[in-house]
Design a protein around this nucleic acid. Structure first.
Lengths: 130, 130
DNA sequence: CCTCGATAGTACGGTTGACGATATATTTCG
DNA sequence: CGAAATATATCGTCAACCGTACTATCGAGG
């Protein structure tokens, strides 16, 4: 799932919204760094509806203009929760890897071993000692 | 930036790796749920090199097979850090939005004020009644 | 001996999803 | 009267990812 899609679900988690409202909600929730384009939004809305992650809540005609409100379905809420946890894990892992990088006084062996492909670890150790 | 790309940078943050090593490192770092395909990997590697986020560390010929090691550049490390923070924020926002949703029997006031310190909650309640 | 799986890289075609541009229509405000 | 905000929709394009297949070496097992 990409960022725009994720943010659409995030916005709909709190309450039903219509297209234009979503554009603003997403901008707000992302601190202004994701500004949904119409093409992205309505594409995502159609796709998510088809996937059953969101549903049409109701339609309203205000002054001849249609407002179509979407709401998050139960399976959409579940999907969002799973996805949020996933992002959390990815962020944590990346930060922990970055910490391994910075520290200059750390020995290579202590840093690298443990998850290196077998054989490669042995080879590398030999290279270092050579 | 998509997940595979993000995980490639994450894997390279700790130490230089070659293509095949990256496939395994990414699988491990993602708890097995992202298994990079050759097409994805080498496409990403070329793209990231062009963008200056990674660099070729060195090349090795082992048994007639080429091993090309890549390392994370300084700007790549910066980009990864920024991206990781971004994911963290997205995850947090999504989880907070989901919390607002769940409880259906909760009144508006109780939902909105539930987490506020008592004194502040009374203030807000007055504002609402006004 | 020969196949299978792991290691290692390259090439190509297809699909998805996001994006920019554009069209349309109404209300509100200066 | 025109600009900006509100509101939905469509089109073509492109980046990124995916599957698959091809090349190649090596060790293990049948």
């Amino acid at each position: 799932m990409h960022e725009p899609t994720f943010l659409v679900l995030t916005a709909l988690a709190a309450q039903p919204l219509h297209g234009y409202g979503l554009i603003q909600a997403v901008a707000q929730l992302s601190d202004g760094d994701v500004r949904l384009r119409a093409g992205t939004l309505y594409g995502a809305l159609d796709r998510l509806t088809e996937q059953g992650l969101i549903e049409i809540d109701h339609e309203e005609a205000v002054d001849g203009r249609l407002r179509r409100y979407y709401r998050l379905s139960d399976s959409g809420a579940a999907a969002l929760a799973v996805q949020a946890e996933r992002l959390q894990r990815r962020a944590t892992v990346a930060q922990s890897q970055l910490r391994r990088r910075a520290v200059p006084g750390m020995s290579f062996g202590a840093r690298a071993l443990g998850w290196l492909p077998t054989g490669l670890a042995r080879r590398t150790a030999l290279e270092v000692s050579a």
